[in-house]
């Protein structure tokens, strides 16, 4: 068993896993569709045209891809540290709130582009603080990060509702449809014919590259990985597992906060209750499907985004519910867990 894993063997193993997972997941979904008397081919073509049928449609894919990729980056940090950051939804929401807070502060008299930049920083900070809060609850309060995070998600949901219906309510009447739109100059620049701000794509790609760099090319990244692999051994290498985990939570929450901030400045131009659109939870599925590795994340994000965007066409062309995309995504992840688990148990038994 002390052979070095060589690259071709590894790639072969991965290709086999991917094939198995897609066969299992898509096979199950196809069986379901056939049983319902729906042609899988129709679905596939509808999804494809829905996602890349036109420039505008592909734009829509990208508007999903940007926050999804950002959330995944945040999760890569926390998963690497061995933490299940289910509180990412709340971190996205808090990021959106932090950004909105600054964007509403027009009394500062700053130039718009600077204000947008500062607002995104505020999103990073507020998301990071929310993530750090869950981390502190774990370190100091003995609250498991899953339940602490989940609880903080609901708290964030309550907080955003209170803001929208209370202090930040629309001129005249409070409404669930969100706050007033920001002034035009506070919208991130979107060229004519585009639906997605090019700057947001750049930010997402940069965030991914930075995440990859920190995790694989810095001492901090290595320490995070070490703590995730074996917190008990960390003190022997002068690493504090609790602080390293907390740092990963803050950083991860911060990146998720940027996703929330971009939702506010680029997509909706206001704060509204479902601002996170469930991208945090979807990102958890993406990272699980990637088996917690960074490499495949952008591609899986793109596929998931295409599914989500393409499925909007399902009710229009085939009179089917758009939630089919979620079924496919979920089936992929469950199949992946099955395949990885099967591999692990075989390796352990050998």
């Amino acid at each position: 068993m002390n052979s070095t894993r060589n690259l071709p063997q590894m790639l072969l193993g991965q290709a086999r896993d991917i094939l198995l997972i897609s066969l299992l997941a898509l096979g199950a979904v196809c069986c379901l569709l056939l049983a319902l008397g729906i042609s899988p081919a129709d679905i596939a073509s509808t999804l494809a045209t829905g996602a890349v049928g036109s420039w505008l449609k592909f734009n829509h894919v990208l508007t999903v891809w940007v926050p999804l990729l950002l959330c995944c980056c945040g999760l890569l940090f926390t998963f690497r540290a061995g933490l299940w950051n289910i509180g990412i939804e709340g971190q996205v929401i808090l990021g959106a709130i932090g950004t909105t807070l600054l964007l509403r502060a027009d009394s500062l008299g700053l130039p718009p582009s600077l204000l947008i930049g500062l607002a995104l920083c505020a999103g990073f900070i507020s998301g990071g603080l929310w993530g750090g809060f869950a981390g502190l609850l774990k370190n100091r309060g003995g609250v498991n990060e899953i339940f602490g995070g989940l609880g903080l998600n609901f708290v964030a949901q309550g907080f955003i509702l209170w803001l929208i219906l209370g202090p930040w309510k629309r001129e005249g009447i409070a409404s669930m449809s969100g706050t007033d739109l920001f002034a035009r100059e506070l919208w991130m620049y979107t060229p004519p014919g585009w639906r997605v701000a090019p700057a947001s794509i750049v930010i997402a790609i940069c965030a991914f590259l930075v995440t990859w760099y920190i995790l694989s090319r810095t001492r901090f990244g290595l320490r995070v990985k070490a703590v995730g692999a074996n917190p008990a051994a960390a003190p022997l290498y002068s690493i504090r597992p609790d602080r390293t985990g907390l740092a990963a939570m803050i950083l991860g929450g911060g990146i998720a906060g940027i996703a929330g901030g971009l939702q506010v400045t680029c997509v909706y131009h206001r704060l509204l209750p479902p601002i996170s659109s469930g991208y945090g939870y979807l990102a958890l599925l993406v990272v699980m499907l990637a088996n917690y590795k960074a490499g495949p994340v952008p591609i899986i994000c793109l596929l998931f985004a295409a599914l989500a965007a393409g499925s909007i066409q399902l009710p229009i062309t085939l009179q089917l519910d758009s939630s089919l995309s979620g079924v496919i995504q979920g089936a992929c992840v469950v199949a992946a867990l099955l395949v990885y688990g099967w591999r692990k148990s075989r390796k352990g038994g050998a």
């Binding site: 299940w84 939870y281 599925l285 079924v327 995504q329 979920g330 089936a331 469950v334 867990l337 688990g341």
Partner: peptide
């Protein structure tokens, strides 16, 4: 299989939800 119970449960949460809406 001894996989993370949290991971399976979480994935199924969303699979079941969307399956329910779809079917």
């Amino acid at each position: 299989l001894g996989q993370s119970q949290v991971a399976v449960g979480f994935a199924l949460t969303f699979l079941c939800r969307d399956l329910a809406y779809f079917l």
